[in-house]
């Protein structure tokens, strides 16, 4: 089953992780592939650490990715990127958002936020480091930061442009198509430019 590509999306409840999973899955379907995803709803969604598993390929069996099984880790937040690093295969790639959201133990001063998450990650895995929040701000809407991230990941995935365009149009209301396409294109461009380290 080496033909199956495994993407683990990690972040903080409320960051648009479920939508990101849906988009990648739709792009895979538009490419004629089999897909399975797995999400977490309920309590963890209230600002907790959450993941969505996306697997696509000729034929997908289990809906979940085991530690050591992910080809890509799409992390919407730096601490969550570190937390799920052990889900990557050796040689897997991290697409990391340069965003810090203090978890409560850090916010109240009981624990400290890890320093330089990106260099810890870059020492172990190829890393595409994206500053998605200012990029989204430049595009005029903070909420498309997740689309910038998806664009960056898309640069690394073997799915055609047309499939992504189809996925964005299907997942986003028409009046936001243009904005989301631009955010996606920006992320794609940033990943293309990024010198993949590691």
């Amino acid at each position: 089953m080496s033909a199956v590509i495994n993407v683990l999306i990690a972040g903080v409840g409320g960051q648009g992780i479920i939508l990101a999973g849906k988009l990648i899955a739709r792009a895979a379907i538009a490419s004629g592939l089999d897909v399975k995803t797995s999400e977490i709803h309920g309590m963890a969604q209230r600002g907790g650490s959450v993941t969505t598993h996306v697997r696509f390929g000729e034929k997908v069996l289990a809906p979940v990715i085991d530690p050591g099984g992910a080809d890509f880790l799409l992390a919407f937040e730096k601490l969550e990127g570190l937390r799920y690093l052990d889900f990557l295969k050796p040689g897997g790639t991290v697409v990391l958002n340069n965003q810090v959201i203090d978890p409560l133990p850090v916010a109240v001063g009981a624990e400290t936020y890890p320093e330089a998450a990106e260099s810890i990650i870059a020492a172990r895995f190829p890393l595409v480091f994206v500053d998605a929040v200012p990029e989204a701000e430049n595009l005029g809407n903070l909420r498309v930061s997740n689309m910038v991230m998806i664009g960056a990941l898309a640069r690394l995935l073997p799915l055609p442009d047309s499939a992504w365009a189809e996925a964005i149009d299907a997942a986003v209301p028409p009046r936001f198509h243009e904005l989301n396409r631009r955010a996606f294109a920006r992320g794609f461009e940033l990943a293309e430019r990024a010198s993949i380290s590691g």
């Binding site: 903080v12 409840g13 309590m43 963890a44 969604q45 209230r46 600002g47 907790g48 650490s49 530690p67 050591g68 601490l79 969550e80 570190l82 937390r83 690093l85 052990d86 990557l88 050796p90 978890p103 409560l104 133990p105 850090v106 624990e111 400290t112 936020y113 890890p114 320093e115 260099s119 810890i120 020492a123 172990r124």
Partner: peptide, 22 residues
């Protein structure tokens, strides 16, 4: 955090938990 097998270089510090919050 990551498992020791993945350790190449920088050690990963213990990570703060992120419990769900109000």
């Amino acid at each position: 955090g990551p498992s020791p097998e993945a350790a190449v270089g920088v050690p990963v510090p213990p990570l703060p938990a992120r419990p769900p919050v109000l």
